[in-house]
């Protein structure tokens, strides 16, 4: 070690403070300090004094870490061929590119990764994808066919039924009367009324018998007389005669069958033009006793094509033809539906 003087004493002092001064040099430094008090050398400071580390860690240090992605996304050659560089970056990069052969090679290799579509691959028959007109699905041919078929079915059934009902038996008039006093009606219609010829000849008798048998489900038989119908089996009533425009004699039972002539038509005050048109005929009713008070006291409903069609539709629906639906609303409104298409009669 050199001798301590005014030019180098600070180096000795630094070694002292860092604890690196050996014992002879320390003694020399102390002597030098005494000989030169004007330098104000302080050797009382603990030479082992250290500035302690702050225990202060940076939070989220990991966020500063870079991943392979970052490295990848920072690849300037890749960004160059992906056109992700701004104008300045691009100019600078292209300037470097002229002189940097490694960069040139990398850019060339990346450019080779650009895919080009094979323009000779075509979708076969593009015309099959094109549409001629915009067709609303409602008028799709299949649906139109189905609707037409459904309507034809309704019309056809309507015509058949109409023809049948107009021939011999008319079941279109619901007439419910109280056979006793012609006022209240604790009865509901068992079957619709039947219209037969007024002249009760043999064929008519047979007709009545046939239809009444249908009415009472073949449990009963009838015979007809000039102005009365006798039902011979039990649980039947019969009208023996008419007197003073009222029912003269009638017995009540669970099931009744009543024959009305033109006089009785007036009695029950049926004003229907259709009924009036057939006043020369006898109307046969089948009723059964019922305590349902909700039944109207006198019902005369005009059954027309729509009503029959609705009835047929309901029957078909009940048989499993779910596509067909019929609905009878109030005020003689009818709805016939086939799939999603419905026709409403108001």
């Amino acid at each position: 070690m050199h001798k301590i003087n005014k030019n180098n004493y600070e180096a000795f002092l630094l070694d002292y403070l860092e604890g690196n001064l050996n014992e002879p040099d320390l003694e020399n430094l102390k002597t030098f300090a005494v000989l030169h008090p004007e330098l104000e050398i302080d050797l009382t400071v603990d030479p082992l004094l250290r500035i302690k580390k702050d225990i202060l860690n940076l939070e989220n240090k990991n966020s500063l870490l870079k991943t392979d992605h970052d490295y990848l996304l920072n690849n300037i050659a890749l960004n160059y061929i992906e056109n992700n560089l701004n104008v300045t970056e691009r100019i600078n990069f292209e300037f470097d590119l002229k002189t940097n052969s490694t960069l040139q090679k990398e850019v060339t290799q990346f450019k080779k990764t650009k895919l080009t579509a094979d323009l000779f691959v075509f979708y076969p028959n593009k015309n099959e994808l094109k549409k001629e007109v915009k067709v609303i699905s409602l008028f799709n041919f299949k649906i139109v066919s189905a609707v037409a078929a459904g309507l034809l079915l309704f019309v056809g059934l309507g015509l058949v039924l109409n023809s049948y009902f107009n021939s011999n038996v008319k079941i279109d008039y619901k007439i419910v009367i109280n056979p006793k006093n012609n006022t209240t009606l604790p009865y509901k219609l068992l079957y619709d009324s039947l219209i037969v010829n007024n002249s009760i000849n043999n064929s008519s008798q047979n007709l009545i018998a046939k239809n009444l048998n249908n009415i009472v489900k073949q449990n009963k038989s009838i015979t007809t007389q000039t102005h009365s119908v006798n039902i011979l089996k039990t649980n039947q009533v019969f009208i023996t005669s008419f007197k003073n425009d009222s029912i003269n004699s009638i017995s009540s039972s669970t099931n009744t069958a009543i024959v009305l002539n033109s006089n009785l038509l007036n009695l029950v005050n049926i004003n229907s033009t259709i009924i009036n048109a057939v006043t020369t005929q006898t109307i046969l009713l089948a009723i059964e006793e019922d305590t349902d008070e909700s039944i109207p006291t006198q019902i005369l409903q005009k059954n027309n094509f729509w009503k029959r069609a609705v009835k047929v539709a309901k029957q078909l629906n009940g048989l499993g033809m779910k596509a067909i639906k019929g609905d009878e609303k109030s005020n003689n409104n009818y709805v016939l539906a086939f799939n999603s298409v419905s026709v409403e009669k108001k």
Binding site: H69, L72, L73, N75, L78, E82, F110, K112, T113
Partner: peptide, 11 residues
């Protein structure tokens, strides 16, 4: 990232 990975792989 996917595009860059793909290009790097292809290169």
């Amino acid at each position: 990232v996917y595009i860059f990975r793909a290009r790097t792989f292809l290169k």
